[in-house]
Simulated assay, not measured.
Amino acid sequence: MTEFRVDPPTAAGERELLQGFLDYHRGTLLWKVSGLSGTQLVERSVDPSTMSLLGLVRHLSEVEKYWFHRALAGHDSPPKYWTAEHPDGDFDLATPAQAEQDVEDFRKIVKLSDELAARHALDDTFIRPGHEGPYSVRYLYIHMVEEYARHNGHADLLRERIDGAVGE
């Protein structure tokens, strides 16, 4: 399933390493959701959690939009999957019928995130909405790698429960 991800470089500049690790983790998520039906993607296989593979895709779409689009670039990018009424809508409102579109939306959001980040140096800073202090683009990359790594651990367990597929 390596068509979804490329190993990050082992010797490169800082920007290339950070981007490589982020891309690797994004690809890992796409690998974990590949080849499953919409019904399998919304399966909540670790009770009592409402987490599903599609919920993770939707959640990470929102995380990408928040950090890259809204915080870094200052775009008006309201949440698509959750509301005040449904704060966990990225997980709770995922449906099999929307699975393919949600994965495609994730891909588009990631592409735009990369375009927005490429406009900034690692030392550039931004103000996160509703938070104090500046954040650097370097911090953003490290935070996103951590976010994906944590959730890819969840994805690995969910996928194994669905069809037994395992992998790093």
Rank of each mutant, 00 (worst) to 15 (best):
M1A: 13
T2F: 10
T2A: 14
E3N: 13
D7C: 07
P8K: 04
P9F: 02
P9M: 01
P9I: 00
A11W: 07
E14K: 14
E14L: 14
R15G: 04
E16S: 12
L17D: 08
L18K: 13
L18M: 09
G20A: 04
F21Y: 15
D23I: 04
D23F: 03
Y24G: 07
G27S: 03
L30C: 01
L30R: 15
L30P: 05
W31L: 07
S37Q: 03
T39P: 00
T39L: 02
L41Q: 06
V42T: 15
V46Y: 12
P48K: 06
L53Q: 08
L56F: 04
L60Q: 05
S61Y: 09
K65F: 00
F68M: 07
L72Q: 10
G74Y: 06
H75C: 11
D76N: 11
D76E: 14
D76V: 07
P79M: 00
K80A: 07
W82M: 08
T83Q: 08
A84F: 04
E85G: 11
G89N: 04
G89I: 01
F91S: 12
F91E: 05
D92A: 12
L93Q: 11
L93D: 15
Q101P: 00
E104F: 03
D105K: 12
F106E: 10
F106C: 05
K108Y: 01
I109Q: 11
K111Q: 14
L112S: 06
S113W: 07
D114E: 13
A118I: 00
A121V: 02
L122G: 06
D124L: 00
D124N: 04
T125D: 11
F126A: 02
F126D: 01
I127S: 14
I127C: 03
G130Q: 03
E132R: 11
S136E: 05
V137F: 01
V137M: 02
R138I: 08
L140N: 10
Y141K: 02
H143W: 06
E146S: 13
E147Q: 05
R150F: 03
R150E: 04
N152V: 07
N152H: 10
A155D: 12
R159H: 12
E160G: 12
I162H: 08
D163V: 10
D163L: 10
A165E: 14
A165V: 15
